[in-house]
């Protein structure tokens, strides 16, 4: 039986999703996502020609507010859950290689 999704596709999707998966997980997800996509093929039984796609439910459009500045929650609160910070900044590992040679 041909699977609805290949192992290479699952690796690609994992990369797009920023999920570092083991070979074992790739293998499992290839099978499981294949089975789910096989089931989802059921939708192709329906002719949807001319049907408007439904993006959301609420009877609302373009909800706007007056352009009045409010107060933010403050740097302390913004940073309180950061895994690493150097107020007022979030701290992350080096992104660019040091190219100055120094």
């Amino acid at each position: 039986m041909s699977n609805e999704i290949s192992e290479a596709q699952v690796r690609h999707v994992a990369k797009l999703s920023r999920l570092k998966l083991t070979d074992e997980q790739i293998n499992l997800y290839t099978r499981q996502l294949g089975a789910i996509l096989e089931y989802i093929k059921k939708l192709n039984e329906l002719d949807t020609t001319g049907v408007e796609p439904m993006a959301h439910v609420a009877p609302l459009r373009n909800v706007l507010r007056d352009d009045i500045a409010g107060t933010g929650m403050g740097i302390d609160k913004v940073l309180q859950n950061a895994p690493d910070s150097d107020p007022p900044f979030f701290k992350v590992p080096r992104v660019l290689e040091d190219s100055s040679g120094a």
């Binding site: 999707v13 994992a14 797009l16 999703s17 999920l19 570092k20 997800y29 996502l33 996509l37 590992p93």
Partner: peptide, 24 residues
């Protein structure tokens, strides 16, 4: 790897499965 490993280690199996299905 901050993203990929944090997310791989932090999310459980079903959450990963749904993120991947949705991304696909």
């Amino acid at each position: 790897d901050v993203y990929s490993s944090s997310r791989a280690e932090g999310f459980g199996d079903e959450v990963k499965r749904r993120i991947m299905l949705g991304t696909y």
